[in-house]
Amino acid sequence: MTRIRPIATISFVILALGLAWLVALPLWMDGGLASPLFGVLVPLMMFTPTIAVVIVMLVLRPVPAGERLRFLGMWPLRPAKRVVWMIVLGLFAPLVLVVASVAVAALFGWVQLDLVHFSGYADVLAEVAPAGAPVPPAGLAILSQLVLIPIAATTVNAVVAFGEELGWRGFLVPALRPLGTWPSLLLSGAIWGVWHAPIILLGYNFARFDLTGVLFMTAGCIAWGILLGWLRLRSASVWPAVFAHGMMNASAALITLLYASGTTFDMAVAGPLGVAGWIVCAIAAVVLAVTGQFRRQPELAGAPGRLLSAPRS
């Protein structure tokens, strides 16, 4: 396994965080989340980890040119059977986890659901419908949303998720892996969470405008980062994590389709990146750990397909 010099890893982190703030700066100067530039700058911000990787690779050259694609998990995709099955798992498991987080939130009373009339979403449809225009049935509108989730996850969401994943799971996880499996997963997840600070402090995700929002996001990214990192380590490929991230983003708002009219909920508690999501991700991580899945990892930059025990944390 290629070992990355600490200066390269530190440089990547500083660049990724600094570029994120640079891209988000216009939002802070004018309009915040209401800025007309929001829809352009946030997707652009998602590519700052990839830009940071490219700069580090070209300037510091921590990996020989001929080994870069393999180190980043982009190529070759072999053994193909394992990579394909891990991509399938990465694509559908996050949807299951998001649904489970909604169930956990309902179980603990953090959200009140209406799975018959979908009254909360019906209210939203009535509010956004043009004056005099017919309002579609909430159930039909939700069905169309559910059909679009896998399409969005494998197209637009996967493209922008790649912008993040090439940095976080493609570069950072294997760069930190000599520290041990768990330190690499926890630390990379924490950095991923802090990277969101420029927009979280504007109220994105949790409608919190102080450090608590960043702390909730960091905890959520650690929880999900363990699972995305496991996909990366178990497959020796970045692509399962890319599609998993795409599906996570595409399905994250599921709870907003199912809540009851006249009730409210806090995404920091009931959402997939909130406490409910932490619980579900923790259960999934425990199952993987108990079944030994964290200890079976192919070499990230060596003979592909050969499984070995992970270094002890």
Rank of each mutant, 00 (worst) to 15 (best):
T2Y: 08
R3Q: 14
R3V: 14
I4S: 06
I7N: 12
A8T: 06
L19M: 14
L19D: 01
A20K: 06
A24P: 01
P26K: 09
P26G: 02
G31V: 13
G31F: 05
G31L: 07
A34W: 02
V40H: 13
V42C: 09
V42D: 04
V42W: 10
F47H: 07
M57W: 06
L58R: 15
R61K: 15
R61V: 03
A65I: 08
A65P: 00
G66H: 11
E67I: 07
R68L: 10
F71V: 02
F71P: 00
P76K: 07
L77P: 00
R78K: 15
R78N: 07
P79C: 15
V83L: 10
V84P: 03
G109A: 06
L115G: 08
L115Q: 11
F118W: 08
D123Y: 09
A133C: 13
A138M: 13
L140S: 14
A141Q: 11
A141C: 07
S144K: 13
L146S: 11
L146A: 14
I151M: 11
A152M: 15
A153N: 04
T155K: 09
V156T: 13
V160I: 14
F162A: 14
E164M: 10
E164C: 07
E165V: 01
G167E: 05
P178L: 07
L179F: 12
G180M: 04
G180T: 02
W182R: 06
S184Q: 04
S184N: 04
G193V: 11
V194S: 07
A197V: 08
A197K: 09
P198Y: 06
P198K: 10
I200Y: 06
N205S: 11
A207L: 05
T212N: 08
T218I: 07
A219T: 10
L228D: 01
W230R: 00
L231P: 00
R232K: 05
R234F: 06
S235V: 03
A236R: 00
P240N: 05
P240H: 07
V242C: 03
H245S: 02
G246W: 03
L257W: 14
L258W: 04
Y259M: 06
G262E: 12
G262K: 14
F265K: 02
A270M: 01
G271E: 12
W278T: 04
W278H: 07
I279Y: 00
A282Y: 03
A284I: 06
A289T: 08
V290C: 08
T291W: 07
R296W: 09
G302N: 03
G302Q: 05
A303L: 14
R306F: 11
P311W: 03
R312V: 15
R312H: 12
S313F: 11
